[in-house]
């Protein structure tokens, strides 16, 4: 140790007072403290679920109790027991199924239309670079408009009925699909096209056998984003002007201070959203398995 340090100092002096590079020479205080890799013990999944259920029950119970002793104003916040009551009434006597079906239909139609048209538009850019260059700025412009700001206009044009909700949902999903699909088109390896052409392929063959299958995963990847966007679009449409739908129920209940109904509608809407999300995830998995691989 001693000699090493001496040598280190000597050579440092020799090369112009640079600090010695040897680590051992700079740390005289023995080896570093031995540390173990920090590992968190994983709980069994039943314990996780138990804690989750307990937390949920606790929050609900606390809410009910706070409303009971007047710590929370039940007029503005409502209370769990009342919400439950409203929920049963909504489903047994109210328009629950009409509203759910209305919102669901508008969302699914907008989702399908927007995704389909957007993907076709994105794919169409492959056919001509000039056409793509001309159209691109317009797509970007349309993308930068907050589509929801156009909602009142769309309602005016398409009327109070279902078609206006579908139109808003379509507008929201269309651009995302277009841009994602076009990004997919540009990501196709140009050498893949060269391979096809070297085999004497026509443009149509390249499109069908290379571009479409290569871009499909990109299109599929936007499905889950789009279902959320479509739901947002149809609800905003219902907020502005509608005779049915969960969005309209929320707005109406809020305006008449039926806070428990607001909660019920939000609850049902969330369930619908989750159901559609799960449905689309299945669709995605099925498409990936059977079409993409």
């Amino acid at each position: 140790m001693m000699t090493e340090r001496t040598i280190g100092r000597l050579s440092a002096a020799a090369i112009g007072r640079q600090p010695p590079l040897r680590l051992g020479a700079r740390r005289p205080s023995g080896p570093p403290r031995a540390r173990r890799l920090p590992v968190e013990r994983q709980w069994p999944s039943w314990l996780i679920v138990l804690v989750q259920v307990l937390a949920f029950v606790l929050v609900i119970a606390a809410w009910e109790a706070a409303a009971y002793i007047g710590m929370v104003d039940a007029f503005f916040w409502s209370r769990p027991s009342q919400i439950w009551q409203t929920l049963t009434v909504f489903f047994t006597e109210g328009d629950a199924f009409v509203d759910i079906a209305y919102t669901f239909r508008a969302t699914i139609m907008g989702f399908a239309l927007g995704t389909l048209l957007g993907s076709l538009l994105g794919l169409s850019f492959w056919w001509s670079r000039n056409y793509a260059a001309i159209v691109q700025p317009f797509v970007i412009c349309f993308e930068s408009i907050p589509k929801l700001a156009l909602a009142p206009l769309i309602i005016l044009i398409f009327g109070m009925g279902l078609s206006s909700k579908v139109a808003i949902a379509t507008a929201l999903t269309l651009v995302v699909s277009t841009l994602t699909t076009y990004a997919g088109v540009r990501a196709v390896d140009p050498d893949g096209e060269r391979l096809f052409y070297s085999l004497g392929a026509t443009r149509w063959q390249v499109f069908r056998k290379l571009i479409v299958p290569a871009v499909l995963p990109w299109t599929i990847s936007v499905l889950r984003v789009n279902i959320g966007l479509a739901l947002t679009g149809s609800i905003v449409g219902e907020f502005i002007a509608s005779q049915h739908g969960l969005g309209r129920t929320i707005l109406y209940a809020g305006q008449t201070y039926e806070i428990s109904l607001v909660w019920v509608a939000v609850l049902v809407l969330s369930s619908l959203s989750i159901a559609m999300y799960v449905g689309v995830s299945w669709l995605e998995r099925w498409l990936r398995r059977d079409l993409v691989r």
Binding site: D191, S198, L199, A201, L210, V292
Partner: peptide, 17 residues
């Protein structure tokens, strides 16, 4: 003219699907 020769490019370019 294309399609007159078989051409194996530097990459294998197998289609994953």
């Amino acid at each position: 003219t294309i399609g007159r020769v078989g051409y194996m490019l530097q990459k294998d370019l197998l289609l994953s699907w």
